[in-house]
Design a protein around this nucleic acid. Structure first.
Lengths: 192, 192
DNA sequence: TAGGTTTCCTATAGGCTTTAGGCAAATCCC
DNA sequence: GGGATTTGCCTAAAGCCTATAGGAAACCTA
């Protein structure tokens, strides 16, 4: 009987793709085993059950997302960086809804996912460097930025904008405009 | 054997409370039956299985939330209305995390949940009346407001603010300030 | 090529969902 | 009030998912 050549990494990756296709909730260990042409129990040697699989997907997604965000802001600053950064999140969520959903799972405080979360906060602070904020304002700006981007993305993905016109694209542009204006208004001395 | 006196309404309500206690995902039909001191199959006469239960909770939550939002904006306008409205959402989500999670479920286009969603959009537009927006700007403002409030609430509930100082309260105030300023700047003629 | 390790398997148990069919309590109606 | 009907809750059973235990085949290494 030939071996399937599974590894933790490959299992998690396949799980992530399955989650994008059928939704995170239906990306079960059983469904994944079927997809991989393997018996369910075989996967338990590579991932720690259902929650382990989801944490793995979350970890993978957060890393991928941070990579994209980092690339998006490289060589940009101010408004350009903001738009590229926020759009990296939105685009990723639309391309990988299952993975994105995994990033929002509540997770234990000792999980490597927490570490990945810190990287995202650092990237967000990097975007905000272009706005010359007071140190004490930065946390609030990080939270505002995260809230707005995640909120828009989550509502859009959840179909919240399906019953109104126009397409979300224009609202997205307006949202980024508003965010940029707000952050500029928070700057120590408004750029001349 | 005495009857338990179940009704659809009572079952859904008990389900909502269970969801708030143990999380929406663990508010299963089985767990609910145990809680109600009844056999699982008995519930199938009152709710249409697991998804029916979740839709019922979503419907209940959206109605309750709309009631609260309506009460919050009654007799207020402008910034006051905005703050009261947004805080009604945030407070509800913190008091009823399971119910709030249910409101974000994707649902078929023929579900009564869609109807309830429209009521929320109407209430949001009522808040925006105080800002004298261009008609064409209103959709974007509705989406911006919804995104920001939901995003903040979702991140806060998901523990996203747990690893940074200070407490979210201050960030919430700053977020509402920013939202108010943005909407004022969108007005046809800024209030004098 | 023999031993040890890894990988995947079978078997099994328990939980959740859902449907089918049955009995008894509540209700209706004369 | 008593019988028929409806309603409410039950038992039983099948299917899928999670999870663990233990075995056999493939791979690696000396």
């Amino acid at each position: 009987m030939p071996r399937a050549g599974l590894t933790s990494d490959r299992v998690v990756r396949a799980g992530a793709e399955l989650a994008d296709e059928v939704g995170l909730d239906d990306a079960t260990v059983s469904a994944l085993a079927r997809q991989l042409g393997v018996k369910v129990a075989s996967l338990y040697g590579h991932v720690d059950g259902a929650t382990g699989l989801q944490e793995g997907i979350a970890r993978l997604a957060l890393d991928e997302l941070a990579d994209r965000a980092a690339e998006a802001i490289a060589g940009r600053s101010g408004r350009d960086a903001l738009v590229a950064f926020a759009s990296a999140y939105r685009d990723y969520a639309r391309q990988h809804p299952g993975r994105y959903a995994a990033t929002r799972l509540r997770v234990g405080p000792d999980s490597p996912v927490v570490e990945a979360g810190r990287r995202h906060a650092d990237l967000t602070r990097a975007v905000l460097r272009g706005y010359a904020l007071e140190e004490s304002d930065t946390v609030h700006a990080v939270r505002l930025l995260g809230s707005t981007v995640h909120g828009f993305t989550d509502l859009e993905l959840g179909g919240g904008f399906d019953h109104s016109e126009p397409a979300p694209e224009e609202s997205w542009a307006r949202t980024l405009d508003a965010l940029d204006a707000t952050l500029r208004s928070w700057a120590i001395s408004p750029p001349g």
